[in-house]
Nucleic acid binder design. Structure first.
Lengths: 213, 213
DNA sequence: TAGATTGTTAATCGATTAACAATC
DNA sequence: TAGATTGTTAATCGATTAACAATC
């Protein structure tokens, strides 16, 4: 890959392209123009072409884009052509729900372990995998070369855990804890702040009621 | 409220301000300048002042901002000074996890009901509330004047449900289904596309490995 | 009053959209 | 070849940052 830096705005749109192209592919659509895709997705054709061209030319003048090829290419860009192992830290409701979510597996994200500090939960099975104690975490991460840690624990626990995760070779943290994590360069954090999302919804409902938008 | 339109970029930052201000307040901090807050939050002081000034002047020259006052004002802007009732549609792992999440309640989001089409789940208790059948949904929404529907069902179910929700007076949809919903004007949708988020993380890990950023 | 810091205007930067030449 | 549609440059728009006058 070349050294050009892609903006997070573009990256953020790739999964949506991927989803629409996957559906087109499943429906047997072979080719699509940026114009057609633009109508389907409700974005400008210009943006679609600009976005794709960040990664090189995937289309052909006069023809458009081959759906399956474009789908596969975007998948590769997103790193979905390789296996990503992950563990879940926090075996509460949310951690368990994520462990049971099968769709991640389809995209190459493999659920390898789940941990909790609560002795009452240890040994419980989540999709056939036993909840392990936090003491076992560092060894497990190193031995199994885990790439991603999913944090579904309260914020204080999450803050105290980052250093350990980084030391044990974790490359990415999917953070559901309601706190900003400070990680060294080279480690990626993707936040899912559910209550922030709910507050945005609340704002938009309230401002709508106030007669705006 | 005046008729000025606030960009979603600004709205998206408000919950984070709210969180930091809440922590400062809890720590007994009385006042803070945009400069201090900027160092804490790792954003520019300029952006902080611009963001706040979208809603009018909350500060005072030579003094800064009163933490508690600012915290309360942002809470009001986000609509957290009123009660928002919600129901969860889909009593699977994720729906159950969200129903059990107590922190939403603290912000005024009140869990009022949970529904599923699977007869095996009906009657199960989630935080003391029984799972109801989908047949009961329209009546329940109308009778209880529910504001928000949380969709934790597969995409086909979600698509088929939107019209009903809108007819029954739902004002906002918190959508965890992996599909774009088409709603009439006046109804708000906030998407939480978990697999999109995970793909973004995957991209950033992969591009990091390729020596970028 | 002098110092501090906001509120706000102006400048810059980046992202989106439009336009069109290249080319299949 | 003519028509269609990309790839890409140029124009526009919006968001962020800088600067500074207003004012506590």
């Amino acid at each position: 890959m070349l050294g050009k830096e892609i903006s997070q705005a573009v990256i953020g749109r790739l999964p949506r392209y991927f989803r629409y192209l996957g559906e087109l592919k499943d429906n047997g659509v072979e080719r699509i123009s940026s114009q057609e895709l633009s109508e389907l997705m409700q974005v400008t054709a210009s943006q679609i072409r600009q976005d794709f061209n960040n990664f090189g030319g995937f289309g052909q003048q006069g023809y458009g884009y081959n759906v399956e090829y474009l789908y596969n290419e975007i998948g590769k860009i997103l790193g979905l052509d390789t296996i990503h192992s992950f563990v879940i830290i926090g075996a509460g409701n949310l951690g368990t729900a994520l462990g049971n979510y099968l769709n991640f597996e389809r995209r190459g994200f493999v659920f390898r372990g789940i941990f909790d500090q609560n002795p009452a939960l240890i040994g419980n099975l989540v999709r056939g995998i036993p909840v392990r104690s936090m003491e076992e975490l560092p060894g497990f991460l190193r031995e199994n070369e885990i790439e991603i840690a999913v944090l579904t624990i309260p914020k204080t626990g999450a803050l105290g855990l980052v250093d350990t995760l980084v030391e044990c070779g974790i490359k990415g943290i999917w953070n559901f804890a309601h706190v900003d994590l400070d990680v060294p360069e080279g480690v990626q954090v993707e936040n899912v702040h559910l209550s922030d999302s709910l507050m945005k919804l609340s704002y938009n409902i309230s401002s709508q009621n106030a007669g705006k938008e």
